[in-house]
């Protein structure tokens, strides 16, 4: 965090933390807004993949939010979407090459889904709905909040699917040998079921809150 950014964060602390918490919980991109679902379902078959994918997406989100909000007065209205996509695509290309350099195995298991971060509706919707209207520091905080909300959601899905489907977490077995894996949780159908299950829990609490 730059010193200037820290200053602003300190000055109006309540609104900044609020901005951050908003993405993490109240407007969580996956559980509440239900956007950016494709990578959520596709690469959440193990906790490790989910975490890596979430962090890559969060990085692209923060960087593109910062760049777009700093350029917001220079981008003509008519071509803004195309400009946003180009900016996002540039950062995604960077992330793609970075992951390839860090771990070839990880790159292989995530496959085309790293490139597909470009078309993650969550990033474009934050650019359009937030970064194009707000200051750089606020957009950065918004990006961080949404990004971590996304990581959190992916991790929730990935860990449940790996524990049930493979009997392990981050590759370490946690159940005794006799545990019969639920293969279905690793398969595509498991992704749908796990997400539906998390949404059910969220709905349950929302209804409870509305009642009281």
């Amino acid at each position: 965090m730059s010193p200037e950014l820290k200053n602003i964060a300190l000055k109006d602390a309540p609104s900044s933390t609020d901005e951050f918490i908003k993405g993490l919980w109240r407007e969580n991109p996956v559980f509440v807004q239900v956007i950016g679902m494709c990578p959520v379902l596709a690469v959440s078959n193990s906790a490790e993949n989910a975490l890596a994918m979430g962090l890559a997406t969060a990085f692209v989100l923060v960087m593109s939010n910062v760049l777009i909000s700093s350029l917001r007065n220079f981008i003509p209205k008519q071509v803004r979407i195309a400009t946003y996509i180009l900016i996002i695509a540039t950062f995604v290309t960077m992330v793609d090459y970075a992951i390839q350099a860090i771990s070839v195995d990880l790159h292989k298991s995530l496959g085309a889904f790293i490139s597909l971060i470009v078309v993650n509706c969550m990033i474009l919707s934050r650019a359009e709905a937030f970064a194009s209207k707000n200051t750089v520091s606020k957009s950065a905080i918004d990006g961080l909040g949404m990004g971590f909300g996304f990581v959190f959601a992916l991790f929730c899905l990935g860990s449940v699917r790996e524990i049930l489907g493979n009997g392990s977490i981050f590759g370490f077995p946690i159940f005794p040998e006799s545990y019969q894996e639920w293969i279905i949780m690793i398969l595509p159908a498991g992704g749908f079921f796990t997400l539906a299950f998390w949404l059910l829990i969220f709905n349950h609490y929302k209804l409870k809150k509305a009642k009281s």
């Binding site: 595509p188 749908f192 539906a196 059910l200 709905n203």
Partner: peptide
């Protein structure tokens, strides 16, 4: 049921469809 309404039931159906396509 009220809890399952909306996206949750849609996802459950999608899961069953995905099973069939297997």
């Amino acid at each position: 049921p009220k809890v399952v309404k909306g996206t949750a039931i849609t996802l459950l159906i999608a899961g069953i469809l995905s099973l069939t396509f297997m």
